Amino acid sequence: MPTQMKASFLNKQSEVAVVMLPVPVLEADQVLVRVAAVGVCGSDVHYYQHGRIGPYVVNHPLILGHELSGRITAVGSAVDSARVGQRVAVEPQRPCRVCEQCKAGRYNLCPDIEFFATPPIDGAFCEYVAIQSDFAHSIPDSISDEAAALIEPLSVGIWACKRAGVALGSRVLIAGAGPIGVIVAQTAKAFGASTVYITDVSDDRRAFALGHGADVALDPRVDSVEGLEVDVFIDASGVAAAVQAGIKAVRPAGRVILVGMGNDTVELPVSWIQNREIWLSGVFRYANTWPLGIELVGSGKVDLDVLVTGRYGLEQAEEALNSGKLSGEMKAIVYPGR
Rank of each mutant, 00 (worst) to 15 (best):
I121Y: 05
D122Q: 12
D122A: 10
G123I: 04
G123W: 03
G123P: 05
G123K: 03
G123A: 13
F125M: 12
E127T: 13
E127Y: 07
Y128T: 14
V129Y: 03
A130M: 08
A130I: 10
I131M: 05
Q132Y: 00
Q132W: 00
S133H: 13
D134Q: 11
F135P: 00
A136C: 09
A136M: 04
A136K: 01
A136H: 02
H137R: 08
H137G: 05
S138Q: 11
S138F: 04
I139M: 03
I139K: 01
P140T: 06
P140F: 03
P140H: 09
D141W: 00
D141M: 01
D141E: 13
S142V: 11
S142E: 13
S142N: 13
I143N: 01
I143K: 01
I143M: 04
I143D: 01
I143R: 00
D145F: 06
D145L: 03
E146T: 14
E146A: 13
A147K: 05
A148F: 02
L150H: 08
L150C: 12
L150G: 11
I151F: 02
E152V: 09
P153N: 13
P153Q: 13
L154H: 07
L154I: 15
S155Q: 10
S155L: 11
V156N: 10
G157A: 13
W159F: 15
W159C: 11
W159Y: 15
A160V: 14
A160G: 12
A160N: 10
C161L: 11
C161V: 12
C161E: 09
K162A: 09
A164T: 08
A164I: 08
A164L: 09
G165S: 11
G165W: 07
G165F: 08
V166K: 03
A167H: 11
L168V: 15
L168D: 14
G169I: 14
G169E: 08
G169F: 05
S170E: 04
S170P: 04
S170W: 03
R171L: 03
R171V: 15
V172F: 06
V172H: 02
L173I: 15
I174P: 01
A175P: 00
